[in-house]
Design a protein around this nucleic acid. Structure first.
Lengths: 264, 264
DNA sequence: TAGTGGTCTAGACCACCTC
DNA sequence: AGGTGGTCTAGACCACTAA
């Protein structure tokens, strides 16, 4: 408590480092190192402001960073309280295949397995909330990084015959861009579901791997602004080539969250 | 452009809904519905302020929400620009087993498979960065929800003989709390890795499932404030009972990110 | 030089909570 | 009534960018 006050007084108002940033780091350290314990409250905003000799708005800016980090939660009329220890809450970021590969410095490409106009079967009809046998554009792709097969993807969108199918768009593995270019409807909401699955024999051949190995399955449903489903896709990522990584904690360098990375 | 101005003028300063919130939603809609396109810039902060008749600080508060949503990225001296279409960036939240089950309204429990002091083998020695054969506390658990086995967990921490092992702490499936109670060292950083795997025969028996079915494998490494590893654990979650769900997009109700959910 | 975003101030009023 | 966080203002100075 008293200890914290000492540290608060060390804030350097004429530093190039912003005051709100210095303050946020002081408070973050105090919490993460256990000097401010879960359930305790921070000093009042006005008190911090007067201790540090800064404006209350600057204090609030610092505290809002701690709120974003879920270290602290303010309660109107009462105070700002340190929340429970948060190393057991993790966030995994997940990017589209092309973005992810570019991020990793690898060259993404896609190979068309086939494109068909099909009549919606039970599963597709349910996912897209359309009648059975509605004409549906079905696209199957193998996704590669530096020419090496990494993932397999199936995408389904309702077919509009007036719109030609452009191959370059089909090969782009982003369902949102495909949907918006074919349907001229904007996907505004998206739901993604991450499952585990086992690679079957057909996909194993396409991915040049053994059947019955485990894999990530990412399902994506896109909705327009009226929450009508307009596209559905599933992607199978080789389990031997992917993992999702996430870092949490004090050190700034490791705060950056990871995404899919090589698994070796 | 002109259209946006019209909407900006509609802001109601005497509403119970905060001005910054109204403004953030107007800008968010304009971006998500494609009226403000990727690469375009928002009106300058001062301009928005004068159009709406509000303070620049309030405008900044609104824009900072869009930054958090990754819809927009401000550039010093130039302007604030709409970023690329972001339905292809997903965040999966992941909670500890106990927290997750309570969130779902199920009663979590754990069953000890065994607790041993072992000599670190190659794998553990490498993960914890300790010499081979160092005494290590090894804990194996089955995690249950409403009595039904859902996950299997192994945890390893360096053994300190002066600290007794308390069963209630062992059964708590949170590695951070286990480490801090046994070692009296605070875990300050955490690294989690999400893999896919296949359940082997021994685990299949414990989880009352068939062997060779797919599962999530979550690895966690904990570090103290000097970035020395102080605990390692792996958890295997039944692939038929888990999925990670995430919603993105315009609608407020669906903005809330999902976690692990039942898979039926 | 003019315009932009980044930081910061010193107030203000409010709703909420506790006493 | 007094303290707390939530919102908002009307300025200010700065560093950066572009013409």
């Amino acid at each position: 408590m008293d200890d914290l006050e000492k540290r608060l007084r060390k804030i350097n108002k004429s530093s190039v480092i912003p005051v709100y940033y210095q303050l946020a780091r002081i408070l973050e350290r105090s919490i993460r190192l256990g000097q401010l314990k879960s359930g305790e409250s921070l000093p009042a905003e006005n008190k911090i402001a007067s201790i540090c000799g800064i404006s209350r708005m600057t204090v609030r800016r610092a505290i809002s960073e701690l709120v974003d980090l879920r270290l602290v939660s303010p309660q109107k009329g009462k105070g700002t309280f340190v929340t429970g220890y948060e190393l057991d809450h993790t966030v995994f970021e997940f990017y589209d295949f092309f973005k992810e590969m570019r991020r990793r410095g690898k060259k993404p490409s896609s190979e068309l397995v086939n494109v068909k106009i099909i009549k919606a079967g039970e599963k597709i009809a349910e996912k897209l909330d359309i009648p059975l046998n509605t004409k549906t554009l079905a696209i199957k792709l193998v996704l590669k990084a530096d020419g090496y097969p990494m993932a397999y993807e199936e995408k389904y969108i309702v077919y509009e015959k007036q719109n030609p199918i452009i191959e370059s768009e089909i090969r782009d593995p982003s369902l949102p861009s495909l949907v918006s270019s074919h349907l001229h409807k904007l996907p505004v909401n998206s739901c993604r579901i991450l499952h585990v699955t086992i690679i079957d024999e057909q996909v194993a051949i396409l991915l040049n791997t053994k059947p019955r190995t485990p894999a990530f399955l990412v399902e994506q449903i896109l909705y327009d602004k009226d929450n009508v489903p307009i596209g559905w896709g599933k992607s199978i990522y080789r389990g031997d080539k992917y993992k999702l990584v996430s870092y949490d904690g004090l050190n700034l360098l490791s705060r950056k969250e990871g995404g899919i990375t090589d698994y070796e």
